[in-house]
Nucleic acid binder design. Structure first.
Length: 210
DNA sequence: AGCACGATTAACT
DNA sequence: GTTAATCGTGCTC
């Protein structure tokens, strides 16, 4: 019998070949899927941010190729996972062609599978009285990594290959342009203009906490 | 070797 | 609205 993947097919590598802004927009509605300890977790991507090139002074690669930014210079479709604020991991997808650093930060997902496992990994914080997560439970890049147990070990792994336990798949939602809102990227306090205000944040309108 | 800061979050006033 | 937590990274000396 045919083993159907209920999550839909993995998004192929060439999906990520374009400019980071194009990839960031196209990722809205896709599924971020995690397989861990026999559990399958998945969420619809609802918010992303684009970081494109050394010219983009908001991008980590503004200082050129370093050990940390190395993955962004490689082939597209890979995970760029980095550590920040001394305690948080953040997940990106590498975009564009090789030698031009670009990535898309996954900022928010809406859970559709494995919520119990996500809550176990994230530890029960900010829950309603009946033990369910409130709307802002997964609306941040570090919250997603905590809920899906994503850390530096997954840096450089291909997100078009389910064998690594973390991938992106079709089968989420179709997001029309009218439902997409753009704004400035978050957290770029000391980044100069125009990069600080360039509208490279993409989110689905009407999200709780968004 | 030392330093300032960070693509954040949760808890607090 | 404000702030502590906490440490890797990249820059300056």
């Amino acid at each position: 019998m045919i083993d159907r993947n209920p999550m839909g097919q993995p998004v192929p590598k060439d999906f990520y070949m374009g400019h980071a802004t194009s990839v960031a927009r196209s990722l809205l509605g896709k599924l971020l899927v995690r397989s861990l300890d026999g559990c399958l977790m998945a969420g619809v991507i609802m918010e992303t941010e684009a970081y494109q090139g050394e010219d983009d002074l908001g991008c980590h690669a503004r200082s050129g190729r370093t050990p940390r930014t190395q993955v962004m210079y490689g082939p597209c479709g890979m995970a760029y996972v980095y550590f920040t604020y001394g305690m948080h991991w953040l997940l990106n997808v590498v975009a564009g062609r090789e030698s031009v650093p670009a990535a898309v930060l996954i900022r928010s997902i809406q859970p559709v599978a494995g919520l119990d496992k996500m809550m176990e990994l994230r530890h029960p914080r900010r829950l309603t009285a009946d033990g369910k997560p409130v709307g802002d439970y997964l609306n941040g890049p570090a919250k997603i990594c905590q809920a899906l147990a994503v850390d530096g070990k997954l840096n450089g792994s291909p997100l078009y290959d389910p064998r690594n336990g973390l991938w992106i798949a079709d089968g989420g939602m179709i997001i029309p342009d009218a439902a997409v809102e753009t704004s400035a990227r978050i957290g770029l306090f000391s980044v100069p203009e125009p990069w600080k205000s360039i509208p490279w944040r993409f989110q689905v309108k009407g999200q709780p906490g968004g």
